[in-house]
Design a protein around this nucleic acid. Structure first.
Lengths: 208, 208
DNA sequence: TAAAGTTTGTGATTGAGTTCTCAATCACCA
DNA sequence: TGGTGATTGAGAACTCAATCACAAACTTTA
């Protein structure tokens, strides 16, 4: 299966597999079968095997997958085997929370530049990172930072995105409720938290 | 098309349509065609029409959709035409940001109860809501709150989910990187922010 | 070494969701 | 009032993803 186009859905699940593998390793499990991983992640065993098969044959029939080895492979596929630096734009409530969020480390991600337009915040040092003025976004070019996180109001999101693209950013995680118009070479993933929550009442039973 | 099973993907897009319609209304646009909405949201016109057709015929051939009328319809479908109260558990960095997040109002959502296990936070009043001890989660039963937001560490997520379910919660928005085991009647949507960001490097061009 | 028991990897199948297409409908205008 | 142009709604066709099912590969046991 190695030479096929990879479904986006498969890429979306790869970090889940990595999480499951790390969980197994913590518990000292050396080998894990697709069935056991399935119980942990609630993704079907066949789905797991098919997803992995797109990239090669990592398992051993009768045994399963070597947790350490497979974790390394997946990290390689996701290109997170070497650390990735990210720039955060917007140090409001959400931006601050993201900056302090401890979960990025497990995936080799590090926020190593922060920008805001509030003079009261510029110059401050949070989490060992100095807050810079958004007008300085262009300096990212020299820092080999390819990922950007947008945590600004919707009205400013597009202009921030434009600046990020101009600064050489190639992947954007966008929290603003707004479609970002960027060149095709730039990958954008948008998370609109309110919109996700807005979907929950639909599933509530009809009776109050 | 009114009597078919609704695809989950369609439900996921409904809030986007609502956002687009609100945007149009702000600009004083009375009627909008599926083509114009498409340009705004980057969802194909056919997709928009098909999604809406699952619930009825809301448009006028040759004209398009009445923005005010359609917005009202969608709110009804999503059951956000009357306000929905939500309980937030976990007032860490992310929880605090969520509590202050202004975006929920547009979807009729309101965080009207907050819980934490930190004695230093319990009793405080944030955004007019008094922070309560997590052991008081059961009091939700009397408050007609059906939605819960979990913003606690992964290690505590399952026990919080159990407590929420016991308190009558029927929909959960989970930010912990963990699969939550809940009864089928409870709908869970998980957002693992780190995991989403971890997917971006995959799309970066091969050369550094 | 042979037989029994697991589990992988993948072609075949099924299913879900998207796009195509066009008849039907409506506004506008001469 | 009849013709023109725009747009909806929905069946049909298509595309993409998930599941099935099984041969091949490996471990274990005797």
């Amino acid at each position: 299966m190695r030479y096929h186009k990879i479904p986006d859905e498969t890429v979306r699940r790869l970090p889940m597999y990595l999480r499951g593998l790390l969980l197994c390793r913590e518990q000292g499990v050396r080998d894990v079968s697709s069935r056991k991983l399935s119980e942990l992640l609630h993704i079907s065993p066949a789905q797991i095997r098919k997803d992995l098969s797109y990239f090669g044959a990592f398992g051993t029939p009768g045994v399963g997958y070597d947790t350490a080895k497979l974790a390394k492979q997946i990290r390689g596929i996701l290109k997170i085997d070497t650390p990735n630096k990210a720039a955060l734009v917007g140090l409001g409530n959400l931006g601050s929370a993201l900056l302090k969020y401890p979960g990025f480390g497990a995936y080799g991600l590090q926020i190593s530049a922060v920008f805001d337009n509030d003079p009261g915040k510029i110059g401050k040092i949070v989490k060992k990172v100095k807050v810079e003025d958004v007008s300085k976004l262009s300096t990212l070019k020299n820092k080999n930072i390819k990922l950007g996180i947008i945590a600004v109001p919707a009205s400013a999101a597009q202009s921030v995105a434009d600046a990020l693209v101009k600064a050489g950013i190639r992947g954007i995680l966008n929290f603003a409720p707004f479609y970002l118009d960027v060149p095709k070479k730039v990958k954008v993933i948008t998370i609109d938290i309110a919109m996700v929550l807005a979907r929950l009442p639909y599933y509530l039973p009809a009776s109050a």
